[in-house]
């Protein structure tokens, strides 16, 4: 069994687009999250760089990123992502739609990274790669794009895992209990349960860190092991969404799995 490049790219695109639809709707449903008085205020964040703060470049960028115009960009990103799911691939319209999602995501990041997370970064990397491949849709470009997305995902898992494995607080389980104890990313019942079952917390934490760091082994193990790695990934991200509220990571990371499947099954 193998995955052809067109199928691999299409699945990456569709899953990532669903994530973009959800995150765009979340912003449009609460426009005040990005207004001038918000914690993501453009009139203040533009002061962080001379290009944004004043002059012709500042005025031009401000016209695009200011409130409420930024909502127009988010809406455009939403429509482009919906069309990517609905329309067939190929042709200039496809390139344009991929470019709009990549550009819309980069505009949000350019505005401020405060309030954004790793899923936004991976979405930008994924759509920029897909757009580059779509501009020059050769067989080699498609293979390069899928390899690149797969390797970025493995780098992400390895980095997150290795920094946890080598962290004293993750290795003794206290970091896991600590994060779960927060209102921001936690779950009160689970935190209390882990707090009274320290040994279980310790081993859950070690298992969680080690499995994250070991994920890149998917590229080296026999192809028959692929489903186990991918099921682990889906369960891991679904758990983080349920327990920590990190819903955007599910789409951003699972979108890279067709690329990983292509690389493993090629």
């Amino acid at each position: 069994m193998n995955v052809d490049t067109a199928t691999g790219l299409r699945f990456v695109e569709v899953i990532a687009s669903v994530g973009v639809v959800v995150s765009s709707l979340e912003l449009l449903a609460r426009p005040r999250l990005v207004d001038d008085a918000s914690l993501m205020s453009w009139p203040v964040f533009r002061l962080r760089h001379p290009w944004f703060a004043g002059g012709a470049s500042g005025a031009a960028i401000g016209r695009v990123l200011g409130f409420p115009r930024i909502l127009g960009i988010v809406a455009l990103r939403l429509v482009a992502a919906l069309l990517l799911v609905a329309l067939p691939t190929g042709g200039p319209v496809h390139v344009l739609l991929l470019g709009l999602v990549a550009l819309g995501t980069s505009m949000l990041i350019l505005r401020t990274t405060f309030g954004l997370d790793g899923a936004d970064q991976l979405v930008l990397i994924t759509f920029t790669t897909l757009a580059l491949v779509a501009v020059h849709p050769s067989a080699v470009a498609a293979r390069l794009g899928l390899w690149f997305i797969a390797l970025q995902a493995c780098l992400a898992y390895f980095t997150a895992g290795i920094y946890k494995v080598t962290s004293r607080t993750w290795w003794d389980g206290s970091a896991l209990t600590g994060v779960l104890g927060t209102l921001s990313y936690g779950n009160r019942s689970l935190a209390r349960w882990f707090d009274s079952h320290r040994r279980t917390a310790l081993w859950c934490s070690r298992l969680f860190c080690a499995s994250e760091a070991a994920f890149p082994l998917v590229l080296l193990c026999p192809a028959g092991w692929l489903p186990y790695f991918l099921v682990w990934g889906v369960v891991f991200h679904a758990s983080c969404a349920i327990i920590m509220g990190l819903n955007d990571f599910v789409w951003a990371f699972v979108a890279t799995y067709p690329a990983i499947a292509y690389v493993v099954l090629r």
């Binding site: 760089h49 790793g118 930008l124 980095t159 997150a160 080598t166 993750w170 970091a175 104890g181």
Partner: peptide, 20 residues
């Protein structure tokens, strides 16, 4: 890197936020 094209993947590590 104003567009964050160079990612930072050390999610919640090495010292995660354990406070609100």
């Amino acid at each position: 890197d104003l567009f964050s094209l160079v990612p930072q993947y050390n999610f919640f590590a090495p010292r995660p936020g354990t406070k609100d």
